[in-house]
C-alpha cells in the first residue's frame, strides 16, 4: 500500500500462522462522535468543495462537491480513475479531507468517524466484500442493525418484502449465494439501520444485465420510501436515466453537473463519457 514497513507482506503467506483474510483496510479519519450544528440552507447531504486524499498521500479530490436532496437519487459517473469511489468515501469519512465540509440535514459531520456517521443516518455499501460471507443472510441483516437497540423485526420483514428471495435463503450462509443475491444482501444490510441516505458504490458491478435492471428497479423503490440515494455507477447511461441529479467527475473535480436528463442530453457529456 503506502510502502510502510509494517505492511510488508513478505513471509505473510503462511496461513498456519497468519490470517490476513478480511483484514481491515479502512482508516477511520474522524475523531468526533457528535455532529456540530451548521447554519444555512443546503441540500440534505452535501460534501462541499472537498479536497483530500488517502492518508498523507497526494490529493485525489480537488474542490469536489457532491450533494443529494431528500428522497432523490444522485449518481456519480466519470471515466476510470476519476475519483468517483473516492468522492463517495470522502463523504463517508474514509478519506483525509484537507478542505471542505460534509453536512447532513443541517449538521456538520466533517470530523465524524464512519461509525458515528452510521448513527447519523448514513449507510454505505462498498463495491466488493460487502457482505459477511460466513454469516447467514439473517445474521448479515442483524449486523446491519448493530447500532439499533429497538425491535429490528419489522425492518427485517421490510427488507424481505423488497428482496423476497432473501427470505427463502435466510438461514443460508451469505457466501453461498449468487452475485445478484449477494448484492441484495449487501443493500439489505445497509437498509437495516433505517438510514436517511443510502450510498452505493457500483452496485451493479459484475451482475448480468437482467439482474442489473432488477437492482435499479429496487433502488428506485427504496428512493420512493424517502431514502436519499447516492450512487457511483459504471453503467453511466442507465444510471443517469434514473438519476435526479448527476455528477460527472474528471480527475477528482466536478466536470459536469445537472439533472440526469440534462446530462444525457448534453452533447459533450455524451461524446466524452457515454460513447456517442
Amino acid at each position: 500500500m503506502s510502502g510502510s514497513a509494517y505492511q510488508d507482506d513478505r513471509g505473510n503467506k503462511d496461513r498456519s500462522i497468519t490470517n490476513p483474510e478480511g483484514q481491515g483496510t479502512l482508516t477511520a479519519y474522524g475523531k468526533a462522535t457528535e455532529a456540530k450544528p451548521a447554519g444555512g440552507e443546503a441540500p440534505f447531504l452535501i460534501g462541499d468543495s472537498m479536497t483530500g486524499g488517502y492518508g498523507s498521500g497526494a490529493d485525489i479530490l480537488h474542490d469536489c462537491t457532491i450533494a443529494v436532496e431528500e428522497g432523490q437519487i444522485a449518481v456519480i459517473v466519470g471515466p476510470n480513475g476519476a475519483g468517483k469511489s473516492t468522492a463517495m468515501k470522502a463523504v463517508f469519512g474514509m478519506l483525509n479531507l484537507r478542505q471542505g465540509t460534509v453536512r447532513i440535514g443541517g449538521r456538520d459531520i466533517t470530523d465524524l468517524t464512519p461509525q458515528a456517521r452510521v448513527a447519523e443516518g448514513m449507510a454505505f455499501v462498498p463495491q466488493t466484500s460487502n457482505i459477511f460471507t460466513s454469516l447467514t443472510v439473517e445474521e448479515n441483516l442483524e449486523m446491519g442493525a448493530f447500532l439499533r437497540r429497538d425491535d429490528i423485526r419489522t425492518t427485517i420483514d421490510q427488507v424481505y418484502d423488497l428482496f423476497p428471495i432473501l427470505k427463502d435463503k435466510r438461514r443460508q450462509a451469505a457466501g453461498e449465494l449468487s452475485g445478484g443475491q449477494r448484492q441484495q444482501v449487501a443493500v439489505g444490510r445497509a437498509l437495516m439501520t433505517q438510514p436517511q441516505v443510502l450510498m452505493l458504490d457500483e452496485p451493479t458491478a459484475g451482475v448480468s444485465p437482467i439482474v442489473m435492471d432488477e437492482l435499479f428497479d429496487r433502488i428506485i423503490e427504496v428512493a420512493r420510501t424517502g431514502i436519499s440515494i447516492l450512487m457511483v455507477e459504471q453503467n453511466a447511461r442507465q444510471a443517469l436515466e434514473i438519476a435526479d441529479r448527476g455528477y460527472v467527475l474528471v480527475q477528482g473535480s466536478n466536470a459536469y453537473t445537472g439533472t440526469g436528463k440534462e446530462l444525457l442530453a448534453d452533447d459533450e457529456v455524451r461524446r466524452s463519457f457515454l460513447g456517442g
Partner: peptide, 23 residues
C-alpha cells in the same frame, strides 16, 4: 449480539466498521 459482531469482525473488518461495530 456481541458474539455475532465478533464473527462479523472476523469475516470482514471493513464491513463491520461500516455497520457501526466498534473494532
Amino acid at each position: 449480539r456481541t458474539g455475532k459482531s465478533m464473527r462479523a469482525f472476523s469475516d470482514n473488518e471493513d464491513l463491520a466498521l461500516l455497520s457501526g461495530i466498534n473494532p
